[in-house]
Amino acid sequence: MKVKSGFVVRAVGDEHIAVPIGDRAKEFHGMIKLNETAEFLWSFFKDEHTEEEGVKALTETYDVSDEEAKNGVSNFVKTMTEHGFME
């Protein structure tokens, strides 16, 4: 799975914000706020990866347990899929 193309992401204040561009801006209006984990995963899932690979990347980068990383990835994928940002 991967995050759909057609967004730009920048640091805004203490968070990151993604906004749609081009054709993506016609189907989605507004912005997406990303916390640190979400921003990491957004960037990671720009390329095609499995959830397991996401968990591995999280545990290798942050000081988190397998369990925490699994929850993090699963929440991210669930939320992004619900909003139609993943394919």
Binding site: R10, I17, I21, K26, G30
Partner: peptide, 29 residues
């Protein structure tokens, strides 16, 4: 700043070309 970000975005015009969209985010930051 997080609360302001949420509130202020509804009061902006967001360009849909990459250059101006990215620049808008940088200015809002």
């Amino acid at each position: 700043t997080s609360e302001v970000a949420t509130r202020v975005f509804t009061q902006l015009l967001l360009p849909s070309d990459e250059k101006n969209a990215a620049k808008t985010l940088e200015l809002v930051d």
